[in-house]
């Protein structure tokens, strides 16, 4: 519970920081580049597109790119769930979220995904019966992802289109950029500015991307694909499943952690953990509290790693 609240606070604070910077004309910028003067984080995908499209390498951006890569190796894809405004925006746009909120207010439990009552399990399953794990690939994961997916192809398409047409094409339709583009336009309403059709078009594009292409983050986002590739060497803050506690290891058909995961990964599956955005939802939702997110895996199962 705690980690999820912390995550939401971080999301809100980061978003507000951008808005405050905009209002104060501080020059701090948006998530595409946020910082002070020359010291600023830059969107790694934007930098790559910019390099490819202009066929020049801007040294300062290259340094930032390297620093970003190091950051991603340490924290993995944490940007996706701790900073990216698309995640809360997408849930805000969904009817499901509002229904769940209403239900919650009426006192009904929303977290009804748990298919088994954890208290019954110890009674139901004889301790001597050792059911083999459901997964065929590795120890205990229910579904392993393919090595590549649509996001990676779109990442390729992003760089290819930048190279062919000589400008960062994806930046035009990037939902993060469009979100802040809309915020800038909204802010411009409070001043001597000309506001055009874009105030309708940017949100329309956002809705198209986030609602029509429902699984934007796991299926389409090329930034997510880049971050997931960069976090291949990441070993810190990875979810760790205590197999002595895990219900699935005890033969129960439990997939609460998979259902909770916004990246649609199975925390049991070591090969997929580079896609983990460190949101902590699996640890929070696990009915047996078998999942933790330690700084380092002490007895890391190196044999399983690719």
């Amino acid at each position: 519970m705690k980690i999820n609240i912390l995550r939401r606070i971080t999301l809100a604070v980061a978003f507000l920081a951008v808005v405050v910077g905009l209002v104060l004309n501080a020059g701090t910028g948006t998530f595409s580049s946020f910082g002070w003067q020359a010291i600023a984080a830059i969107c790694p995908l934007g930098v790559l597109e910019s390099f490819v499209a202009s066929r020049t390498i801007f040294p300062r951006a290259l340094i930032v790119l390297v620093v970003t890569a190091v950051f991603v190796i340490i924290f993995g894809k944490a940007f996706c769930s701790w900073l990216c405004p698309v995640v809360p925006l997408r849930s805000l746009l969904r009817v499901k979220t509002w229904k769940a909120l209403l239900k919650h207010k009426n006192g009904k439990e929303v977290n009804a995904q748990i298919r088994v009552n954890p208290t019954d399990i110890s009674a139901d399953i004889p301790t001597d019966v050792k059911t083999p794990p459901t997964c065929k690939h590795c120890s205990g994961c229910a579904s392993q992802r393919t090595k590549l997916d649509s996001r990676h192809l779109i990442l390729g398409g992003t760089l290819l289109s930048a190279a062919v047409f000589g400008f960062p094409v994806f930046c035009l339709i990037c939902p993060i950029g469009l979100t802040f583009g809309t915020v800038i336009l909204l802010w411009q309403l409070f001043g001597p500015n000309e506001v055009g059709l874009a105030l309708l078009l940017y949100p329309a594009l956002l809705v198209l991307e986030l609602l029509v292409l429902r699984k934007w983050c796991v299926k389409f986002c090329p930034l997510g694909a880049l971050l997931s590739l960069l976090s291949l060497p990441n070993r810190l803050f990875r979810p760790k499943v205590d197999s002595s506690q895990c219900l699935r290891m005890k033969g129960v058909d439990c997939s609460v952690c998979i259902d909770a995961c916004p990246e649609e990964i199975d925390p049991h599956c070591q090969q997929d953990l580079h896609d983990c955005s460190k949101c902590g939802l699996c640890a929070e939702k696990c009915p047996a509290s078998a999942i933790s997110i330690p700084f380092r895996q002490k007895n890391s199962s190196k044999s399983v790693l690719p």
Partner: peptide, 12 residues
């Protein structure tokens, strides 16, 4: 070819 539409110049 280079601009990533981050809005910092406008902001500053």
């Amino acid at each position: 070819g280079t601009c990533i539409r981050c809005g910092r110049c406008q902001n500053v």
